[in-house]
Computed example of a mutant assay.
Amino acid sequence: MLAGLKLSHIVAGCIAVLLGYTSSVAIIFQAIDVLGASQAEANSWMLALGVGMGVSGLILSLRYRMPILTAWSTPGAALLVISLNGVAMSEAIGAFLFCGLLLTLTGITGWFERLSHLIPDTIGNALLAGILFQFGLGIFSSMEENLPLVAVMCATYLAGRRWFPRFAIPAVLFAGCAFCAATGAFQAGEGIDFSLAQPVFTMPAFSLPVLLGVGLPLFIVTMASQNTPGIVTLKASGYEPPVSACLTVTGLTTLLLAPFGGYAFNLAAITAAICAGPEADDNPQTRYKAVVVTGVIYCVVGLLGAAVISLFLIAPKALVVTVAGLALLNTIGASLSAALAQPERREAALVTFMTTVSGITFLGIGAPLWALLFGIATGAILSPRGRRSLRPVFARR
């Protein structure tokens, strides 16, 4: 099956794993911290996420002989950071199961095409930009805590974007860790735990406000900002991915692993581009082997979830926040640009963005869902059809 494994497959797989973890694991750690998870629960999260990505990617790539790579939902993790404050772990798990159920039903029933048209792209991009905005601000607020560290990381980021853009974020993480090691910024007395992570089951609890305020936005963000780009990435590389099957597998993976911390799985986009491109293999028919390598490494790293968590426990907060913010800068900029690109829909996008950033909570439901409702309502009212329907009402007055 893997008799033709090449060095390029191994290199591409390693780069995909490195980029996948360094670009967003800091955000996962923040979400875990907001919930007040114990060390064992945090280790279980990393185990579930690593094994979930690895196994689902292996299933899809081996079954369809395509470089179909899966990932955890990075925008979903960002959503959790701003939505889970004050939410019990059991209720959060219930929201994850609800999201997994929606993902699975979307795959089984083929709802994806219809669902993709319900939310305008401008609204979806504005929601994503609003969710990620606080992470971008975190870069600058961290300067008050540790200006030299943040300055070194920002300088490395600029150099990376100029000369080695694909490795900019790994370079930022390396530079930050090297600076902390040289200045003694790592917490003394804390060691790295290389023991195998153990799964910790959390009994879910279901709360309607949490399901609507966390589970539903998690599903929407995952579909709009992860699965759609993932499909586009594969098609751009010349593949015709089995969309419904991919959504079904990632949805079932979420359902199975949610009680252990696997909050949402989806198709990868950026890391998939690494495995689906000519750098992985000149032959498009055998590029799936790079995903097989990636899947195996994901499983191994997941088993060492305790070590991953340990690295972030000993690191200063400014390091974690700055890595996360810099990793998301491009996504924030692209989302804002796409959200404001159409003048006739700009106000609706701005309402969505500002509502999300505000962090408001009504009826126990967080800002992301209200942002969608306000943005869609604004767009409907200000659209040419909406103006025509309202004109007789104001004329009668």
Rank of each mutant, 00 (worst) to 15 (best):
L5M: 13
H9R: 09
A12R: 07
A12Y: 04
C14N: 04
A16Y: 04
A26P: 04
A26I: 09
A26Q: 11
I32M: 13
I32L: 11
D33E: 12
V34P: 13
G36M: 02
E41L: 13
E41F: 04
W45I: 02
M46N: 07
M53P: 00
S56Y: 09
G57Y: 08
I59F: 11
Y64P: 00
I68V: 14
T70S: 11
A71I: 10
W72Q: 13
A77C: 12
L84R: 07
A88C: 04
L101V: 14
L102F: 09
L103F: 15
L103E: 10
L105T: 12
L118W: 15
D121Q: 15
L128C: 03
I131C: 01
L132Q: 03
F133W: 02
L137E: 00
G138E: 03
E144Y: 01
E145H: 08
E145A: 15
N146I: 01
C154W: 03
A155G: 13
T156V: 09
W163M: 08
A168W: 11
G176I: 01
C177E: 14
A185H: 11
G189P: 10
E190L: 15
G191N: 11
P199W: 07
P199G: 10
F201G: 04
M203H: 11
A205L: 14
F206S: 02
V210M: 03
L218G: 11
I220T: 08
T222P: 00
M223I: 15
N227R: 01
P229F: 00
V232N: 04
L234Y: 09
K235A: 01
S237W: 11
G238S: 12
Y239K: 06
E240D: 13
A245Y: 05
L247V: 10
G251F: 10
T253L: 10
L256I: 13
A258F: 00
G262N: 10
Y263Q: 14
Y263L: 13
N266I: 01
L267P: 05
T271I: 07
N283H: 11
Q285G: 14
Q285D: 15
T286I: 00
Y288M: 09
A290F: 06
V301P: 00
L303K: 05
F312W: 01
A315D: 02
A315R: 06
P316G: 08
A318I: 00
L319E: 01
N330E: 07
T331V: 08
I332E: 02
I332M: 07
G333R: 04
A334Q: 14
S335F: 03
L336H: 06
A338T: 13
E344W: 00
E347V: 11
V351T: 06
M354T: 15
T356K: 02
S358R: 07
I365R: 08
R387Q: 15
R387M: 12
R387A: 13
S389L: 14
F394W: 13
A395T: 03
A395R: 12
